[in-house]
């Protein structure tokens, strides 16, 4: 996957522990357009390893000059958010993925209810721009602990006016999901992003009220594909290849000059299938190609997406 090269053009502290980063294309041109609800995966080259975290794009999808993301410093940071807060400066160069959307607005919906809890507001930032542009019927419900935790509140108030409904818990304003979801016209879709408890409460309220599943959406971030390093032994050529935590087996073989077959590089076509001869661990299958029985047998692997939790794996290649 080709990366986008960006340069950090602004950094702003927006709330306690939350920083706002603005990226521009490193070549000075336009960045790719995107749809509301998209995220990018930012690669952060720390000294010992590269972290990859997914962040929602906050900016208007219509604006191709800049991307904006918000990064909250996490106490138990895996290292990524700490790196962003401490190492990244205006002028820093970064690699980011092309925008990916796993939380799109339904284009056949007639009304849209967006429900955000705390930092869960981020994927909605680009969605509201899109909904405003298309003139859709929507409202944003924003629940937060207290105003100092309500990121982007001024910007949202300005953009949305009456369509923004705040639920400030410090003022005992609770979001009554039952009331909200029992009065929506047919054809409404609801979208939720926030703490697990809030997401679960919304999903079960909608279910009890008889909302069909396809009208209820929640944000799911695809975990960036990281694993643990291990060694590949190739029986026929006698070669030994180290697979780092950040690369796929296929990429590792290619880097080592091994001519391994592939087509789709996405676990669908079946072209890269290899025979597993031995391993001291378990295979982590991520492909759509092998049948469950084949996966269970432990005799086959699709190196373009799958890997193993082991110290070594031996392949018939």
């Amino acid at each position: 996957m080709s990366a986008l090269k960006v340069i950090v053009s602004a950094i702003e502290q927006v709330a306690d522990g939350i920083c706002h980063f603005t990226f521009a294309a490193a070549d000075g041109g336009e960045l790719p357009g995107f749809s509301g609800g998209s995220h990018v995966v930012v690669s952060m080259p720390a000294h010992n390893r590269t972290y990859r975290n997914a962040y929602s794009l906050l900016s208007s999808p219509a604006d191709r000059r800049n991307y904006q993301i918000a990064v909250r410093l996490q106490e138990q940071s895996r290292g990524g958010s700490r790196f962003m807060h401490e190492q990244v400066k205006v002028g820093s160069r970064l690699d980011i993925s092309w925008p990916v959307n796993l939380f799109p607005i339904s284009r056949v919906g007639h009304k849209h209810i967006l429900v955000a809890g705390g930092i869960g507001i981020t994927p909605f930032m680009s969605q509201v721009h899109e909904l405003l542009r298309t003139g859709a019927d929507f409202e944003l419900h924003y629940a937060f602990r207290s105003p100092q935790y309500a990121g982007f509140i001024d910007q949202l108030q300005q953009l949305l006016g009456k369509n923004l409904i705040c639920h400030d818990q410090s003022q005992r304003q609770v979001l009554d999901l039952q009331a909200l979801l029992s009065q929506q016209p047919l054809g409404t879709h609801v979208y939720v992003c926030g703490p697990a408890g809030m997401v679960d409460a919304l999903l079960s309220t909608a279910y009890e009220l008889g909302w069909p599943d396809a009208h209820v959406h929640h944000e799911e971030f695809l975990a960036p594909p990281i694993g643990e390093p291990f060694t590949l032994r190739l029986k026929q050529s006698g070669k030994s290849v180290e697979v780092g935590a950040e690369v796929s087996m296929l990429e590792a073989m290619e880097a080592a000059g091994v001519d391994a077959p592939y087509l789709c590089r996405g676990g669908a076509c079946g072209r890269c299938e290899l025979e597993v001869l031995a391993t001291d661990g378990v295979i982590e299958h991520h492909d759509h190609y092998l049948s469950d029985a084949e996966k269970g047998s432990g005799k086959k692997i699709m190196p373009c997406v799958s890997r193993a939790k082991c110290s070594f794996i031996e392949l018939n290649l």
Binding site: L181, S182, P185, L186, T188, L209, G210, H215
Partner: peptide, 9 residues
Amino acid sequence: LQQSVMGTR
């Protein structure tokens, strides 16, 4: 349909 709410089967 026009008057119905979500949850109408």
